[in-house]
Design a protein around this nucleic acid. Structure first.
Length: 202
DNA sequence: TCTAAGATGGGT
DNA sequence: CCCATCTTAGAA
């Protein structure tokens, strides 16, 4: 469960670090919130992927700077939300300093707050461990829209972490759905909370 | 302008 | 395996 007093909001400075792979790993166990008129939802991040604009063929911003990816070039601590396959809204956290296009894709979440609202958004029959077990359903359960891209993570969308950082066991793996990235598809840049049943299915 | 393809998910 | 669905990037 979520014991509020044991958590603190992650400051924007955290996201401005220069190692997106390290940040991706450190975000495992953090709690993501989204407050809307419909209500508050929140949950523990159990799966992430790192994308690096300068060295990574899988990254949308690899050797290009377009209208869609412009937000990735901003300083860390904003949302990058885009439409995938014309259907899904994928939520990313922009990292690094201005000019460096890095981001962390949030792939799966363990629901903690606002489960009824998540079920309303994703479909009544949803099992709890499938409510946000994939980047597409994370976007759906949390009610993200592409218009929120570039929103700062210090307002209606924010993250919290435990004050006394406990050792979190993290599993490392290849990223999903990036076969087009050739040799970079092999990078072990996906991170999961060890033993979590809330991760995306294979 | 035109078009192919995509950091997916759910159903058959 | 198949397909929904629509923006975006890059080509023409």
């Amino acid at each position: 469960m979520f014991e509020q007093s044991a958590y603190e909001t992650i400051p924007l400075s955290f996201y401005q670090g220069d190692d997106v792979v390290k940040i991706s790993r450190e975000l495992i166990g953090a709690v993501l919130f989204h407050d809307t008129q419909e209500g508050l939802v929140g949950g523990r991040i159990v799966e992430t992927e790192a994308y690096n604009g300068r060295t990574d063929k899988a990254c949308h911003a690899y050797h290009r700077r377009t209208k869609r990816t412009e937000v990735m070039y901003a300083s860390g601590g904003r949302a990058y939300i885009y439409l995938c396959y014309g259907i899904h809204r994928l939520f990313n956290i922009v990292t690094n300093v201005e000019g460096k296009a890095d981001a962390v894709l949030i792939r799966a979440i363990e629901p903690l707050v606002g489960l009824d609202l998540m079920r309303l958004r994703t479909g009544k029959e949803k099992k709890e461990f499938r409510l946000a077990s994939g980047p597409g359903v994370v976007g759906k359960a949390f009610g993200f829209s592409t218009q929120q891209t570039s929103t700062g993570l210090d307002d209606s969308i924010w993250l919290e972490r435990e004050k006394n950082t406990e050792a979190v066991e993290v599993v490392v793996a290849k990223r999903i759905g990036v076969d087009y990235a050739e040799e970079h598809a092999e990078l072990m840049w996906r991170f999961m909370l060890k033993g979590s049943k809330f991760v995306s299915r294979k």
